[in-house]
Structure formats: C-alpha cells, structure tokens
C-alpha cells in the first residue's frame, strides 16, 4: 500500500506522466468516433443517432411505420403544456434557462462551475422547480420525461455540443464518467462498453445492441418494452439491473458523470429526440 502511494507520488511528480494522465476529451472523441466509423464504414456519422435501426432492416421498417404516428406524441404535447404552464409564483421554466429553454438541449449535460458538478437537463429542470418553490420531479419517467421530450424536440437537428471546459473539476467529472463507462460491474461482469462498444450492432437475444456513439441523441424516448417514456437515467438503471448491479440514485454523481462522458462522445451528431425504440 505504501509502495503504491510512493509510485503515485512519483507519477504525479513526473511532468511527462502528468501530461499524459490529464484527461483529454478531444482526442478521446476522435478515437471513439473513429472506432465506430472504421468498424462500420457504411454508416455515416450522423446516422448513429438511429441506434439499432442502422443494423436491422426489419426493425428499421417497423420503426418507419411506427413513426407515422410517433408513440411519444402524447408525451410531447403534454410536456409542452407543462413547460409553458405558469408556476404559482407567476414565473415559468423559460425564465430559468437561456433562450427561454428553447433549442438548448444539445448543450446538456453541462458543467456548473458554481457547484463543481455536472447538471443534466433533467436536474436543471428540477433546480428550476426548487428555485420557484416547487418539489422535484422523478428523473426517470412521467412528467419529467414529458418536459424533457418537449425541450429536446425544440433542439431536434441541432448539433450536440457538450464541450468539457478546462476546469479540473469538469475534467475529473468527465474522467469519472469515462471510468464508469468502461468498468465491468455486476455479477455478470459487463461494462457499458461491453455491450455498446464491443458488441455494438450484434444481437442480444432478439435485440440489436445500439452503439454508444449517438445513443444519447434520442433520449428521452418511448420504449415499447416500457410502454411509456423514459429518460437516459432510466436506461442507465435498467442496464445496471440487467448485469445484476445495484443501480445508483438517478441524481447521483455517478450517473451525472456517466451522462456527461457519454453525451460528449456524440459531440457533432444531431439531436434526434424524443425517440422511439423497441
């Protein structure tokens, strides 16, 4: 143990090691996107927001049919009503966000230098509620998913831009999210990357595993298996349970950081949410 500390101290003191150990989101992004583009040369970068539908003709055909009457339409309309409704104090969500909350989803999750933490769009909505004397909404489904569906819809087609600022706490959050993404966990010993990088596009039973690239772009989404809307954090919880790992709390640092890393890996892709999945 003592030796480990000594080794760590030596590493930290070596300038070269320090430079190579500092998180480098820009080169990570290049390697991450490059990996998928090289592995699936027929799929253009922007098409990754289609997730499993790039890999299964039958699912894609079904999806096209479903999208004639999008299953998230009801949530979208409801979300708009909720978003535009006045709080008891006369204010509304719009006052809490730049541009009145319209067309900003592509910039979330965002690092908040004041608290030193990552803020997802859902957590920002809850902050707004608390600031206006209201209680927090559940971050996984229900009214929150509907509000996020509306806000995300106003960003549809806009380019995801989650740039990690050169701030030690932001970089630490990014790095923590990255480590979470690649760490195997649960009794079944899977990492997020096991399924969504290594086995991307393959079949787990009848389901195509969506590539991690572009995966955040369609959230929140209507999942037929759920029968309703769900946010990205709902999916995190589901994946954790599937590998037999106790999920984190929806507003935990672990999930904030994971969303931060994962979304930043889709920088440059268009927002495609709300979405629909099997």
């Amino acid at each position: 143990m003592k030796f480990a500390y000594l080794a760590l101290a030596l590493l930290v003191m070596t300038p070269g090691a320090l430079a190579s150990n500092k998180p480098d989101p820009a080169s990570d992004l290049k390697a991450f996107q490059g990996y998928f583009l090289k592995r699936f040369p027929k799929i253009p970068l922007a098409a990754y927001v289609n997730g499993p539908y790039d890999f299964s003709k039958s699912e894609r055909a079904q999806w096209k049919q479903i999208m004639e009457f999008p299953p998230y339409q009801f949530a979208l309309d409801h979300g708009r009503k909720l978003f535009e409704a006045k709080f008891p104090n006369g204010k509304s969500y719009a006052a809490c966000f730049p541009h009145g909350g319209i067309g900003i989803a592509q910039n979330y999750p965002m690092f908040d230098p004041k608290t030193g933490r990552v803020v997802t769009l859902g957590i920002a909505v809850n902050r707004c509620r608390v600031a206006n004397g209201l209680g927090k909404l559940k971050l996984t489904t229900g009214p929150m998913a509907d509000i996020l569906a509306y806000m995300t819809d106003t960003s549809r087609g806009k380019t995801i831009d989650v740039t990690v600022p050169d701030n030690p706490k932001a970089l630490a959050a990014y790095q923590a999210g990255k480590q979470y993404f690649y760490s195997r966990r649960g009794q079944l010993n899977f990492s997020c990357a096991s399924c969504h990088v290594q086995a991307a596009g393959m079949h787990l039973r009848g389901n195509v595993l969506a590539p991690a690239l572009g995966i955040t772009a369609s959230f929140p989404l209507y999942r037929s298996k759920w029968g309703n809307m769900g946010t990205l954090v709902r999916r995190f919880i589901g994946c954790n349970k599937k590998v037999r790992s106790v999920p984190d709390k929806p507003d935990s640092a672990a999930y904030r950081d994971l969303a931060y890393f994962l979304t930043s890996m889709s920088d440059g892709l268009p927002i495609a949410g709300p979405g629909a999945r099997p």
């Binding site: 086995a199 393959m202 079949h203 787990l204 039973r205 009848g206 595993l209």
Partner: peptide
C-alpha cells in the same frame, strides 16, 4: 446461454 449463443433448440438466440 441463448442470449448470446445460437444452438439448436434456442429461441430468439443472440450472436455475440
């Protein structure tokens, strides 16, 4: 096993 492996008698098997 059939979540990832195809074998005779498996229903909706995967291909990982």
């Amino acid at each position: 096993c059939d979540a990832c492996h195809m074998f005779a008698g498996a229903d909706e098997a995967g291909n990982i």
